[in-house]
Design a protein around this nucleic acid. Structure first.
Lengths: 122, 122
DNA sequence: CCGTAAGTTCAAAATCTATTGAACTATTGA
DNA sequence: TCAATAGTTCAATAGATTTTGAACTTACGG
């Protein structure tokens, strides 16, 4: 798999996006990214509760290759963000409905105050 | 895989739905179902352009197991329909945005008059 | 320069998914 | 009853995805 390139927004494929979002680890990454309100970038290391470093590299690459996330290198870190505008231009509403669906699903699984509980679990 | 049972609507899992929708054959089935305006059921046999009988049985089972479709037996036929209300209750807007996205993707691939061309290709 | 921290790469293994063909069941119509 | 139709089941295969560990690169601080 080639690692750093991002697909241009008009070449993002629906099936690839859905496949990227259909894995629990990657869905976890995406809703964690979506949960950040003001600043929207995250260091890869902040997702260590979702898997090993090696494995996360793999999942980040899939999300990036599918056009779901953007990655930027700075020093020895990578900063990840959702490609909201690009996705919304190509498939209007899709990312938002998936994020909302994922949040409501998470709420049902963990009835006691989603965000706080997720933080504590790290 | 267990074949006829359908999950109750409150047990439909997001990851399973997205995974079901992330395969081109199954996405094809879903948009074909969505393209029917008045009557909403289809015989399995109407999808033979999308794969072999055996293979379609497999894909129909996946869609059904994920909660995306409903299957009803009548004689030797099965009638398939989308579980629109159930999906919409659980994940509002999701099915519609995916269908719209799939249609716009199909339109870009086949620029000459989507529906007519699809019919002719059978 | 040295050590550490953040991620990547590669190859192997483990696990899933999709596809096929042959044999099967169940229903229908003649 | 017979043959045909519609779809299922099963086992085998091919192929793709996920996961892991060890070795690696690159940047940063002291």
């Amino acid at each position: 798999m080639s690692y750093l390139p991002h697909p241009p927004s008009d070449q993002i494929e629906l099936a690839a996006v859905l496949e990227a979002l259909s894995d629990p680890t990657r869905l976890g990454i995406v809703i964690d990214l979506a949960d950040r309100k003001t600043e929207w970038e995250a260091r890869c290391g902040e997702f260590s509760h979702l898997g090993s470093k090696t494995n996360l590299t793999y999942h980040f690459a899939k999300l990036r290759a599918a056009g779901v996330t953007h990655a930027r290198a700075e020093g020895t870190s990578r900063f990840i963000s959702l490609r909201r505008e690009d996705l919304d231009a190509r498939f209007p509403g899709l990312l938002d409905t998936v994020i909302k669906a994922a949040r409501s699903a998470a709420r049902k699984r963990e009835p006691a105050s989603g965000r706080a509980v997720r933080k504590a679990a790290r």
